Amino acid sequence: MNRRLVRARPRSERATESDVPALEPPITVGRWNVSWILPALLLVAVVVVDWNASEHLRIVTWIGLVPVFAAVTCGLWTTVGFGVATLVMVGLLEWSLNHRYAIGLSDLLLVVTACVLSVLASGLRVRAYRQVRQLEDAAQATRLAVLRPIPARIGGVETANVYLAAERAAKVGGDFFDVQPTPHGARVLLGDVQGKGTSAVDAAAALLSAFRESAYYEADLAVVAGRLESRMRRQNHYVSLLGERGERFATAVLVGLPVEDRGWLEMVNFGHAAPLAITRERVWELPEGEGAPLGLTELTGALPPVRRVAFPAEASLLLYTDGVSEARDRRGRFLSVIDEFRGASDTAPQALVARLEDAVLRHAGGRLTDDTAILAVRRDPDPPPEGLALE
């Protein structure tokens, strides 16, 4: 089932309770708010036609549609204004035309009822919108608590990322990513917890907390991978004690970049889609996931191996979740991510993330069936001096 895509808003764009009604998106043309034009045109049209019609043809009752349209397109006080204007115009028409066939009491009551109900409907719509925005802000706070903002330059690498939520009110699911500066070089993690809901978010938060701690202190990437697997198992055990059925698992890619460029990186792939390495000359896939997902390695009896993969200093690493790899167009065709980056002139992380985001939205027609996380990193050619803070 398709759901409307919403890009999660940054912290600076979050609404407060007092300004939520003002943030209701109007109908705009450029920078101009034109949501009032349709009911205004309808008001003028009814008045003009009724003024010029014969006394045997009265259409003044159609004026009751004016506040109805205002309730749909405008805010509460604008709807009130159109309701008052509607009643005033009915009175002026009756006074000025002095028709032999005056508007009946039942028709007048119909117009008054339409005005009153339109104002009530507008108030309910604004109230519902406020509740939705508050729900979005709560979800946004959850997202920022789980997926903390990543600086554009950190730990000797340049980064860029985006999280696209398929569910309007959720804005966060089981997708997770982070870049951790460490004494052993930058460590990168991206993955996707199976399932939806708060338990998937909880599992993603548990994995990220384990990654941030172990990635900093452990020099061996295999030990970090083992800590992630252990944390996933303990999370499943904890959830089972709460009475929830079904164990979670997570596909993930764990990457380690040495402090100094050595022409390679280390990678552990827990059953995830292959990341891409991108330069101006070529695009290629790194090894695909050959091991079991986190939480299921008991099935194979061992963790996925640590692979040392050639990675030039000028290359960018692009990682993404299955919201990208499983995005389909109207004909059911998957997006060819590699083809999107062949011949790319700008391989900076920000450009790659923006390009893939646009490609996914274009391919899926702006509607995704799954949350999507995209992360790109590359070595910073001129890293600023910075200390590594213990977290």
Rank of each mutant, 00 (worst) to 15 (best):
N2F: 15
R3W: 08
R4L: 11
R7G: 08
R11E: 12
A15H: 12
T16E: 06
E17T: 13
S18G: 13
P21G: 02
P21N: 01
A22L: 10
T28E: 13
V29R: 10
S35W: 08
L38T: 09
L43I: 01
W51H: 13
S54W: 07
H56Q: 11
I59E: 07
W62M: 12
I63E: 07
G64E: 05
L65T: 08
L65P: 00
V66H: 04
A71I: 06
V72E: 08
G75F: 00
G75K: 03
T79L: 03
T79Y: 03
T86L: 03
L93C: 11
S106R: 12
L108N: 12
L110Q: 14
V111I: 15
L117N: 07
S118P: 02
L120I: 15
A121S: 15
S122M: 05
V126L: 02
A128W: 09
A128N: 13
T142M: 14
T142V: 15
P149T: 03
A152N: 10
R153Y: 08
I154W: 08
I154E: 06
G155N: 04
V157T: 01
T159V: 13
V162L: 01
A166N: 15
R168A: 05
A169H: 12
G174R: 04
V179A: 01
V179K: 08
P181M: 02
T182M: 02
P183G: 06
H184N: 03
D192E: 09
D192A: 01
V193I: 09
V193N: 05
G195H: 03
T198K: 04
S199Q: 13
V201L: 07
V201K: 00
A204Y: 08
A204M: 01
A206D: 05
L207T: 02
E218C: 07
A219W: 04
D220Q: 10
A222T: 09
A222M: 09
A222F: 06
G226S: 10
Q235H: 14
N236Y: 02
S240P: 07
L241Q: 14
T251V: 14
G256V: 00
R262P: 07
L265A: 05
L276D: 03
I278R: 03
R280A: 11
E281G: 07
E290P: 03
P293T: 09
L294R: 04
G295L: 02
L296P: 04
G301F: 01
A302M: 12
A302Q: 13
L303S: 04
P305G: 02
R307D: 12
R307M: 13
E314T: 10
A315H: 09
S316R: 05
L317A: 11
L319K: 05
L319D: 00
L319H: 00
Y320P: 05
Y320T: 07
S325K: 06
R328T: 14
R331N: 11
L335K: 04
E340W: 08
G343S: 15
A344V: 14
T347V: 15
P349T: 01
P349M: 03
Q350F: 07
R355T: 09
E357S: 04
L361M: 15
R367M: 11
R367D: 13
L368Y: 00
T369K: 14
D370P: 05
D371T: 06
T372L: 12
T372V: 12
L375F: 03
A376P: 09
V377D: 00
R378H: 09
D380E: 03
E386A: 15
E386T: 14
E386N: 03
E386I: 05
G387R: 14
L388M: 06
L388Y: 11
L390E: 10
E391S: 11
E391A: 14
